[in-house]
């Protein structure tokens, strides 16, 4: 199989059938083929975290996965998280704390923060910082992001 491949998966709850070049990564597929531009290409080598999405319920780097590897997978992007309401509490906290400036890292940050919260993470600032350390933010200094995650968890920060 070279050149193009067939792909069937679910993206934000909708079935997607597509023919994609096998070399196209999942991030480019989401952005350019599906128009889901909320996930961002910050480095294209898996370091910055701006393309972090959920695949089968866990965070992955969209730039480090081929679109064809998503065959049969359930993919959720920041758009899906917003539509379903899953990110609503985080979004409110990010707004209240100004935990974003340019917003380029934000979709990946939301996905990673959600994984931390849903995984039962506590309001431990060091643990939150460690969990989010694969998501670069060049604007905020991170503190407001940690504040926002703590707010959602609801406990007093350690």
């Amino acid at each position: 199989m070279t050149g193009m491949a067939r792909l069937t998966c679910r993206v934000n709850g909708e079935e997607v059938r597509a023919e994609v070049p096998v070399r196209r990564n999942l991030l480019d597929f989401l952005r350019n083929d599906l128009g889901l531009t909320g996930s961002h290409a910050g480095c294209e080598h898996g370091v910055c975290g701006a393309c972090t999405i959920l695949v089968d319920g866990v965070t992955v780097r969209g730039c480090l996965m081929l679109a064809v590897q998503a065959e049969g997978a359930e993919v959720v992007t920041v758009e899906g998280l917003a539509e379903s309401g899953r990110s609503a509490a985080l979004a409110a906290a990010f707004t209240a704390r100004n935990a974003l400036q340019c917003g380029f890292c934000t979709p990946g940050m939301i996905a990673s923060a959600l994984e931390y919260i849903d995984g039962g993470g506590g309001p431990d600032r060091a643990a939150i910082r460690a969990h989010l350390s694969g998501n670069y933010c060049r604007c905020t200094g991170y503190q407001a992001v940690v504040d926002a995650v703590c707010d959602v968890i609801g406990g007093a920060a350690k």
């Binding site: 898996g46 975290g49 972090t52 965070t59 992955v60 780097r61 480090l64 990673s112 694969g134 998501n135």
Partner: peptide, 9 residues
């Protein structure tokens, strides 16, 4: 090893 999203894959 790396970060959570990398460890997931």
């Amino acid at each position: 090893i790396a970060h959570p999203a990398i460890r997931n894959r």
